[in-house]
Structures are given as structure tokens and as C-alpha cells.
């Protein structure tokens, strides 16, 4: 094992402690290597004296958790989750709920309009019965235009719903991650 590998392994083993502490620890070892080199030692000799990264990291982690009992780890996981859930609940109620309802009602309204437009030619039948053939033709052809618009709108709404569904699912997943405490590096 050479110096680079030593540092690489040590750094990986220490990834659960804060970056600042990790950097300080690694710089202590950096200093140790520098002085060792000045005294004419080889990388192998120095590593031999230091011991393997596993032993060192065990020591570091044990000390770290002994002096930082408030670490956000399994023991306090439940409390943290509850707090996160409460925080999210308020955030969702105050910030997210209003816009979400607005977007959803606009979405439903557009869907309704689309369906209405598509079936609008049917309305020309009662007009025909009431007012004769010419008004029927006029209503029928103008409603065909509406029907076309309705079909296009419908296609657009399919895309919109896909997007909304995707956004909603991602947002819910984000919420769950925050509560469970994943995605923390």
C-alpha cells in the first residue's frame, strides 16, 4: 500500500464524519508523512508504523461518536423524522396547498372545456329540431371547429396530465425522502 491508497482508504472510511473534521484528520496524517519523508523514511515504512486505515478509522469514529452524542444517526432517527414530517406538513399547507389547488382546478376546468368542445356538434341537433335546417347547418359546422379545438386541447391535456403526475410523484418522493432521512451525504 502506498500513501495515496492509504489516504484514499482512510478518507472513504471516514465519510460519515463532517468534512471539516475529516480534512483536519487527514492533514494531521499529511504532516506525519511529510516529516517522515524528511527523516528519510519510505511510504511503506511510515504506513507500517501508522497502522492500517481500518484501525485508525475505528479509533476516529469511536472518539467522534463519543464526543458528539447528538449525531443525527439511527438513535435520534425517529425524532428527526417526526420533526421533518411536522415541518413538511406546515410547509405543504402554507406554501404548496394553495398553488396546487389552483393548478388542479385549472387542469380540471381545461379538461371539462376540452370534453365540452369535442361533443359540441351534438348541440346542433336540438337547434336543428327547434329552428330548421339552415340554423342546424350553421351550428353544426361552427361546432365542428370547436370540436377540432377540443380534440387539440384534449391532446395537450394528456401531456399536461403526464407532466403533473410526474411532478406530483417526484414531490411526494421528495417528501418521503426528507422524512425518512435518505439522500443525506
Amino acid at each position: 500500500m502506498v500513501k495515496n491508497e492509504f489516504f484514499h482508504r482512510l478518507e472513504r472510511l471516514l465519510k460519515e464524519i463532517p468534512a471539516k473534521d475529516r480534512k483536519e484528520i487527514l492533514s494531521d496524517f499529511e504532516e506525519h508523512f511529510t516529516i517522515g519523508f524528511n527523516e528519510g523514511k519510505t511510504e511503506e515504512e511510515i504506513i507500517q508504523e501508522l497502522g492500517d486505515p481500518e484501525t485508525i478509522s475505528e479509533e476516529v469514529l469511536a472518539d467522534y461518536y463519543a464526543t458528539n452524542p447528538k449525531s443525527p444517526h439511527p438513535v435520534t432517527g425517529i425524532t428527526r423524522s417526526i420533526l421533518a414530517a411536522i415541518g413538511l406538513l406546515f410547509f405543504n399547507l402554507i406554501v404548496i396547498l394553495g398553488p396546487l389547488l389552483g393548478i388542479l382546478s385549472a387542469y380540471i376546468a381545461f379538461c371539462g372545456v376540452s370534453v365540452g368542445f369535442v361533443f359540441s356538434p351534438l348541440l346542433s341537433i336540438p337547434i336543428g329540431i327547434d329552428s330548421g335546417f339552415e340554423p342546424f347547418l350553421f351550428a353544426f359546422f361552427s361546432s365542428l371547429v370547436l370540436c377540432g379545438i377540443g380534440v387539440l386541447l384534449g391532446i395537450a391535456m394528456i401531456y399536461v396530465s403526464k407532466f403533473l403526475w410526474y411532478a406530483l410523484v417526484s414531490y411526494l418522493r421528495f417528501n418521503i425522502n426528507v422524512i425518512v432521512g435518505r439522500n443525506r451525504s
Partner: peptide, 24 residues
Amino acid sequence: GYELAQNISEKIQVAEGTLYPLLR
């Protein structure tokens, strides 16, 4: 640190690397 590690490992068998966590 280095000096201390040398002084200790002269007389006591120890993985010098573990002294750094102790010092911290």
C-alpha cells in the same frame, strides 16, 4: 504529532495512527 508518535512507539507497541484521534 510525529515526534510524540516516535517517542511513544520507541517503548510501547502501538499503531502510531491511533495517536492522532487520541490527540484530537
